[in-house]
Design a binder for these strands. Structure first.
Lengths: 144, 144
DNA sequence: TACAACTAAGATAAAAAGGTCTTATTATCT
DNA sequence: AGATAATAAGACCTTTTTATCTTAGTTGTA
């Protein structure tokens, strides 16, 4: 569904959010350990997220990644996906046609449009904040 | 959503179905032209579809690919997707976790499960036959 | 039976995605 | 100020996906 980069990006953001709620910054290494991702690759993805203002980073010792508490309930999954994978997921045709739209649709256009719209809706309505809840209570997990 | 191979596979199957309904076989070359796909790559995909009994091929002059009329209304999109991409789409975790299930879910497990189930449902209920209808009447397209 | 028109299959190549490594830069603590 | 611990950035490598090429095999028809 998403690229690997995007999957890591979402997981990383959720983890940073959890820690930020407790007032902590998180180092690159800690994030990679916690979400079980390759360190160097994760670094790149985090840079993208910083560039897109989803989180910010502090350099130097005792530095790390953090999200403003206020922002945690504002950030939507859709923003993360957009930052990393772009908007192809919403726009692209299910059968790979370049020009596929309501006036010149592929045979599955309508059926796919519904699924995609549901997905979009879900991503736009899901905040990072609500995803942190289960983690704090040990009901959900970010690795294995 | 699907691999390129799978997209070509679906398009090819629909085109072969349309022709089969009119009693024609379709050559590899004709299929590739009609769905605007690379010939050699399409050949491989068609071989997979034949192997999975979604269509059959006849060698020699005046040969080509064909689907039994009876079968056209029986084949579901899900069978084509399964033949080429396997069942990863239904099973895999939205965040890429290897073990992600109801008892040990990732934070977005439930939300993704719903989307995936809808997709699965749609694929399993959509027959190739119904996708041929729009093509015959010029309402839908397989290229551009 | 030989030729033409086609598919079958596997080796190879190119492109994209995934992942690593190195060097530079920044900030803090001593 | 200097050592250190962190991020930033981009070059580089690896794997997977996508696509091509080549050779072999099949079959209907003249």
């Amino acid at each position: 569904m998403f690229s690997k980069a995007c999957e890591y990006g979402i997981r990383a953001t959720i983890h940073v959010a959890v820690q930020s709620l407790e007032g902590n910054k998180v180092s690159l290494k800690a994030i990679a350990t916690e979400i079980d991702s390759p360190v160097a690759f994760t670094a790149k993805i985090l840079q993208q997220l910083v560039k897109h203002h989803i989180m910010h980073s502090v350099m130097g010792p005792a530095g790390g990644f953090q999200i403003e508490k206020k922002k945690i309930s504002e950030i939507r999954l859709s923003q993360i996906v957009n930052a990393i994978d772009g908007d192809a997921i919403y726009k692209s045709c299910g059968l790979g046609l370049k020009e596929c739209n309501a006036t010149k649709p592929c045979p599955v256009h309508d059926k796919f449009a519904k699924i995609r719209d549901d997905l979009k809706e879900m991503l736009e309505h899901t905040s990072v904040a609500e995803l942190t809840v289960g983690l704090e209570t040990g009901l959900t997990f970010l690795k294995r």
